[in-house]
Nucleic acid binder design. Structure first.
Length: 270
DNA sequence: AAGACACTCAACCGCTCAGCA
DNA sequence: CTGCTGAGCGGTTGAGTGTCT
């Protein structure tokens, strides 16, 4: 009846990961990949549930992760994407190489949200908080004109979802049945279809790096990433300094293209 | 100096979805 | 078609840390 727990709570360690646990998990995944996450902790000799291992790996241990605060350019992309997609953090993260949904979600809640509110912009609707006047005119620069033209209402988002689903199963929504709720929604939604950014967002393929809105990713972030180990601020704390030993992971520099792993004998298994 | 308060972010929880038998 | 299982996602929590008084 009830949902089966992902693991029996007895004998399963919780809380912060130790360096030793990190080491075990990385060693295991790099040598074996992960056939199924539930089996990983047993095989790796960890007293954790598989879910916890997956989270630790995807959010913290993955070698292609960038760490540190989001750059202004990344922040801008997050704002734009959030205006279009709402709280679909995984979708947003998929378009930001080296960033995780958790990281973006946290950054949104702790930084961007406040920044937008301070600027008089509703972080949910991306519209000015005071709609009678125009107090946020100066702040509007945060949300680009391009993104503002595609602000996503709940209804639009539902329509996007429906379109996404219909695209997925090969069928398409009848044109007459969509985007008819309001003239504004209609034009906005149809422009979504035309919008290359939205098309790109809804694709599963990783970005090529040629997308104009990702230009920062190709020439700034990768440099930052590669220089991180040399810089004064390491991306991880001292407890995981040993991770630097894994920096190449047997993966040459050529394996990181625009933040994506493209030729890893180990990682490509995933 | 120390206690209170605020902030950050890693980790957890519970739900949904996809794949499979 | 149905039920089960594993994986992924978004929301929430709480420990650790920083800042203020």
């Amino acid at each position: 009846m009830g949902r089966q727990p992902c693991c029996d709570k007895l004998g399963v360690k919780r809380g912060p990961w130790t360096a030793e646990e990190d080491r075990k998990l990385i060693n295991f995944i790099l040598t074996n990949g992960h056939c199924c996450w539930r089996a990983v902790p047993k095989l790796a000799g960890l007293l954790r549930c598989g879910k916890s291992c997956r989270l630790r790996w995807t959010n913290y241990l993955r070698p292609d992760l960038k760490r540190g605060l989001l750059t202004d350019a990344e922040e801008q992309v997050v704002i734009d994407l959030h205006a279009k997609l709402g709280n679909r953090w995984s979708k947003i993260a998929a378009k930001l190489p080296g960033r995780t949904d958790n990281e973006i979600k946290n950054h949104w809640n702790t930084h961007i949200k406040k920044k937008l509110i301070k600027m008089g912009i509703d972080p949910v609707t991306h519209e000015p908080l005071d709609r009678t006047g125009s107090p946020a005119t100066a702040s509007q620069s945060v949300v680009t004109a391009e993104s503002k033209s595609h602000e996503v209402t709940t209804q639009q988002r539902l329509q996007d979802d429906a379109r996404e689903v219909s695209a997925g199963d090969g069928s398409s929504l009848p044109e007459s049945s969509t985007n008819t709720t309001s003239t504004g929604g209609s034009s906005s939604s149809s422009s979504h279809d035309q919008d290359p950014l939205v098309k790109w967002l809804l694709e599963d393929d990783p970005p090529t790096g040629n997308e104009p809105w990702l230009s920062f990713a190709g020439n700034v972030d990768v440099d930052e990433f590669s220089s991180i180990a040399d810089g004064p601020e390491l991306p991880w704390d001292g407890a995981t300094d040993w991770l630097l030993d894994y920096q190449d992971f047997g993966l040459g520099d050529s394996n990181l293209v625009d933040g994506y792993m493209v030729n890893s004998s180990n990682i490509s298994k995933f």
